[in-house]
């Protein structure tokens, strides 16, 4: 297993080559694993330590261990923390529900070949690859109350103009729509890939049994597509909970004048880089990370369940 089976004379680096081949499992994988440990595991441990301290202002400044004080003050903070949790949940739930529903509908429409299908599939890639900061700016202009196209369109339809992103009561909802615009194509692509792999026999059998289109979708297609649907749901939920660019670019630090779009991510960024409350920020990001891991574990369990 370890020696090279050739007739050529041994070269100086053959010893190293033998060693590398013998331990190839780790030789090949180690650089990436060390990279991730250095950039994720070590900083996470550092964050855990910071979260037990009152570090703020500058990291060079001396700090004291306050143990769970930061966690207590965050979990009892009803002014910034719990509203941010609520906004993160509502943003993710509404945006992802719309993305999954519209995504499934469009994927079903695109399932069979027809003239122009290729064109639609190219067009829907555009929101996906467009730079999020540019997308945010673009929608900022479209939703601009006086010159934006959104209010112009409402005017044509005889509806009253809206404040959209600038109005604290509609800002979060408007930005959910932007998220839906940008990421529904991702859901469509994933579901389409799943639909292509489905066998036709069950469809045909259900059709012969006289099942309606809706019954066939609900009782035949959807159960067979379950793992793909949950995979799309998983991917989108986690990324929606982490939305940063769109919210920060359109509403700035703190999520607007009354924190109207401040999610956990935006709040954590402000604590870290605007208020420089490193100890508090560290506790917040760890709570935030645990919430995301929780969602991941629950959805992954659903995905691994056997399809009955």
């Amino acid at each position: 297993m370890s020696t090279v089976v050739t007739g050529r004379p041994r070269r100086p680096w053959d010893g190293f080559s033998d060693w590398a081949n013998k331990h190839r499992k780790w030789v090949l994988a180690a650089p990436a694993i060390i990279f991730v440990i250095a950039l994720m595991v070590v900083p996470l441990l550092y964050t855990v330590v910071l979260s037990f301290t009152d570090a703020e202002g500058s990291i060079q400044r001396a700090f004291d261990f306050v143990w769970f004080e930061n966690y207590v003050s965050i979990l009892t903070d009803t002014a910034r923390f719990w509203p941010a949790v609520w906004r993160t949940v509502i943003f993710t739930a509404v945006a992802v529900t719309l993305e999954m529903t519209i995504g499934m509908a469009v994927a079903l429409l695109l399932r069979r070949p027809f003239m122009g299908r290729g064109l639609i599939r190219v067009v829907m890639l555009l929101p996906l690859v467009a730079t999020p900061v540019a997308v945010a700016m673009m929608w900022l202009l479209i939703f601009e109350p006086t010159v934006g196209f959104a209010n112009q369109l409402l005017g044509w339809l005889g509806l009253p103009a809206q404040g959209w992103i600038s109005d604290p009561s509609t800002a979060l909802g408007t930005l959910m729509l932007v998220d839906v615009w940008q990421w529904t194509p991702m859901v469509i692509l994933i579901l389409l890939a799943g639909l292509v792999g489905l066998p036709e026999e069950q469809q045909e059998a259900a059709r012969i049994d006289g099942a309606s289109n809706w019954q066939r979708f609900w009782h035949v297609t959807l159960p067979m597509l379950k793992t793909t649907v949950i995979a799309a749901l998983l991917l989108r939920s986690i990324d929606a909970m982490k939305t940063f660019d769109l919210l920060y670019v359109t509403k700035g630090t703190g999520g607007g004048s009354s924190h109207e779009v401040e999610t956990l991510n935006i709040y954590a960024y402000a604590l870290s880089f605007d208020y420089n409350e490193y100890g508090m920020a560290a506790a917040l990001v760890l709570i935030y990370f645990l919430i995301i891991v929780g969602v991941l574990v629950v959805l992954n369990m659903r995905r691994k369940e056997k399809v009955r």
Binding site: L39, M40, Y46, K242, A268, S272, V285, Y288, F289, V293
Partner: peptide
Amino acid sequence: LSRVIPHVTLLVPW
């Protein structure tokens, strides 16, 4: 897991 972790978690240590 590094695909899942929010980047804001790592930015201060980085």
